[in-house]
Simulated assay, not measured.
Amino acid sequence: MDIQGRRIARLLKSLTCSVLGLTATLLLAGCKVVTVGHTIGSVTSGSGAYHCPAGQVCEIDVVDIHFSETFRGQAIHPNYRFKGWKKGDRRLCGGTETACSLSTDFFTDHPPLMDILQSDERFYVIPEFERIGPVETAELGFRDDGNPRVFDANDRLIGTLVDDPQTRKKGIMVRLRGYARQYIIFLEHTGFNYRVSNPQNHLAYNNASCDADPLPSMILPEWPVTGLFPATGFWPIIVGPDGQFYITDPVVPPAQSTWAQRWDSPERECLQVEEETGRVVPLVSTDIAPEFPLRTEGLERGIDGPFPDSLVF
């Protein structure tokens, strides 16, 4: 089989039409390719005509045989690099590590390909990334969303306060430079004030002393989820021992593991779970180290740090 024949066979096998980018306004029907920007990376075409920013879902209609583009993944965080294209059903260039070259210029002589081009089928181009440096410290950023701003005791801007009784979303919204995800520091009421929630009992350690060397992982719930916390729409900032703040690793998927777990009791006992296993996702340390108590602009209500112990009854 010649090179052209192999190209056609690959296209038919994956039911592929070819394009990537932002939503286009076109009057004719056509197949669609969707790309999901990664939390730490974007996808851009060689011509510059199409760009899908990190954290966004992008779509375009393909309606003719004149499309030809090459796409590349680009990390926006300095500690990561493009790894390749994700495999899966209806995913284009899946399993390859080079730029993704797509074209419809030879579809005319192949009716099955023209049928796909004229359909409303959806196909995907999804980048994957990998860490190239040591476990990084995420830098604190800020985006004004109209909610009251939160400062620490040293007047460092931390984020914005969200307390929505309808959605039960209560926390400090935080932006981290180089990450497209939205993050939240969960809060709980303690009388008049707030206090940072302390989920230490949900952290998994791979050492018997339950210390943060190496970094702990987060124990995930057993029920099916599409994301870690789909009920809130935001990714959590986890408070570990001694007030250390972590985020879930953006490129390492959850895995089954056996762990040691910190049970904060009056004796601060660290128990080794020998037989029990479950899903965990690695954590990445951040440079968020606020000086408590925090203050909320325009409000008398303060925000205290996490309890040193989260008692288990």
Rank of each mutant, 00 (worst) to 15 (best):
G5W: 03
L12W: 07
T16P: 00
G21N: 12
A24M: 03
A24R: 13
T25M: 04
L26T: 10
V43S: 06
S45K: 03
Y50T: 07
A54F: 04
G55A: 09
G55K: 04
C58M: 02
F67Q: 07
E69M: 01
E69A: 15
T70W: 04
A75H: 11
R90V: 01
T96F: 09
T98L: 05
S101E: 13
P112L: 10
M114F: 03
V125Y: 04
P127T: 07
E128Q: 09
E130C: 06
P134C: 05
D144M: 03
R149T: 12
F151S: 07
L161H: 10
M173V: 14
M173R: 13
G178Q: 07
A180V: 08
I184Q: 08
R195G: 03
P199V: 11
L203M: 15
Y205Q: 09
N206G: 05
C210I: 08
V225K: 13
I238C: 05
P241I: 09
V251D: 14
V251E: 05
S265P: 01
V273M: 10
P282L: 11
L283H: 02
V284K: 00
T286S: 10
I288K: 00
A289V: 14
P293Q: 06
G298C: 05
E300C: 01
D304E: 15
D304T: 15
F307P: 01
